[in-house]
Computed example of a mutant assay.
Amino acid sequence: MLHVYATLQTLGFRIKNRIQRDETGATAVEYGIMVGVIAVAIIATLMLLGPQLNALFVEVNTQLKGIGTTPTTP
Rank of each mutant, 00 (worst) to 15 (best):
H3V: 06
P71R: 15
Q52M: 12
T70A: 14
L11V: 00
A26N: 07
T72R: 13
V35N: 12
G36R: 09
V35C: 08
G66L: 12
G66I: 03
D22F: 03
H3K: 03
L49A: 15
L8Q: 10
H3W: 00
V40C: 06
H3G: 00
I19E: 06
T10Y: 04
R14A: 01
L64S: 12
T27D: 06
K16Q: 09
G36W: 04
P51A: 10
T73F: 09
Y31V: 05
K16T: 04
G32M: 04
T10L: 08
E30K: 09
I19P: 00
V58N: 06
V37Y: 03
M47V: 15
T69S: 15
L2H: 03
V37H: 07
L8G: 00
I19A: 04
G50M: 07
I33P: 00
R14S: 01
A55P: 02
Q63L: 15
M34S: 11
K65P: 01
I42F: 12
I42R: 01
V58D: 11
E59T: 11
G36D: 14
V40K: 06
L53P: 04
G12E: 02
V4Y: 01
I15N: 01
H3A: 10
I33D: 09
I38F: 10
L2V: 07
Q63C: 03
T27M: 07
Y5I: 10
Q20W: 07
E23F: 02
L11S: 05
D22K: 01
L56P: 03
G68T: 14
P51N: 13
N17L: 06
F57H: 07
T24G: 01
N61E: 15
L2S: 09
T10F: 05
L49S: 12
L46W: 09
L2Q: 08
Q52N: 08
A26D: 09
T10A: 13
T72S: 08
T62H: 12
L64T: 11
P51S: 13
N54G: 06
R14K: 07
Y5F: 08
G32A: 08
N17Y: 02
L53W: 13
G36I: 04
M34K: 13
Y5H: 06
T62V: 10
T72V: 15
L53Y: 13
A55M: 12
G36P: 05
V29S: 03
Q52F: 09
E30D: 11
N17F: 03
E23D: 01
F13L: 08
T69K: 15
P74G: 06
G50S: 13
A41V: 11
A6K: 03
I43C: 05
H3M: 04
P71W: 11
A55Q: 13
P71T: 14
V60M: 14
I38H: 05
L64V: 12
L56R: 12
T70L: 14
R14I: 02
V60Y: 10
L53F: 15
I43F: 10
D22G: 05
V60W: 08
T73I: 10
Q20E: 13
V37P: 00
F57S: 09
V58M: 08
V4K: 02
R18C: 00
A41W: 05
G50D: 08
M34D: 12
K16D: 10
I15L: 05
A26M: 02
K65M: 13
M1S: 07
A26V: 02
N61Q: 14
I67R: 12
T27E: 11
P51I: 10
T24E: 12
A39V: 11
T45W: 07
L8D: 10
V4G: 00
I15Y: 01
R14G: 03
T27R: 13
I42E: 04
M1L: 02
